[in-house]
């Protein structure tokens, strides 16, 4: 009986992992980003990885999705190369600076500011 319950729980976890992964993949392909934010909870909650490992594994999981999506976007002609060259450099520089500053700032405060900006940007995008 106990083994039966355990196997049911395992099946449910596997099913939830597949469903959540499909959702993360859909978001990443459709919107060109944001999948990583959904993948981290899959690793921490469903697959019981510790936070540091979950973040590292999430980047590794998102990388092939981004490569494939980028190829499809290029083939379908969605890329404006002059913008990509000028803005892409800034985005990469920002990423490096962000990584260097990460340990020197208040995590909770930074997260809250980040989430509030996300919500405000979402509302602005929704109303146009």
């Amino acid at each position: 009986m106990k083994a039966d319950a355990l196997s049911k729980k395992k099946k449910l976890t596997a099913l939830c992992t597949i469903a959540a992964s499909v959702a993360a993949g859909c978001v990443n392909g459709l919107f060109g980003g944001g999948g990583g934010m959904l993948v981290v909870p899959i690793f921490t909650v469903l697959l019981s990885l510790e936070v540091k490992k979950a973040h590292a594994t999430a980047v590794a999981a998102i990388l092939p999705m981004s490569v494939v999506s980028a190829i499809i976007y290029i083939v379908k002609g969605c890329v404006e190369w002059n913008i990509t060259y000028s803005v892409g450099g800034g985005v990469i520089a920002g990423g490096v600076i962000g990584a260097l500053l990460l340990k020197k700032v208040n995590n909770f405060l930074l997260s809250m500011v980040f989430y509030l900006i996300m919500i405000a940007a979402g509302v602005k995008m929704l109303i146009g």
Binding site: V22, A23, G25, G29, F31, T57, P64, V68, S69
Partner: peptide, 27 residues
């Protein structure tokens, strides 16, 4: 050694399939 390959594969296979569909719909 922070990447869990086993967990990554469990997520990447369904996610990548969905991602291709999403990326094809987006344009």
């Amino acid at each position: 050694r922070l990447i869990d390959i086993g967990a990554m594969i469990k997520v990447v296979i369904p996610a990548l399939a969905a991602c291709v569909v999403g990326a094809l719909i987006a344009p």
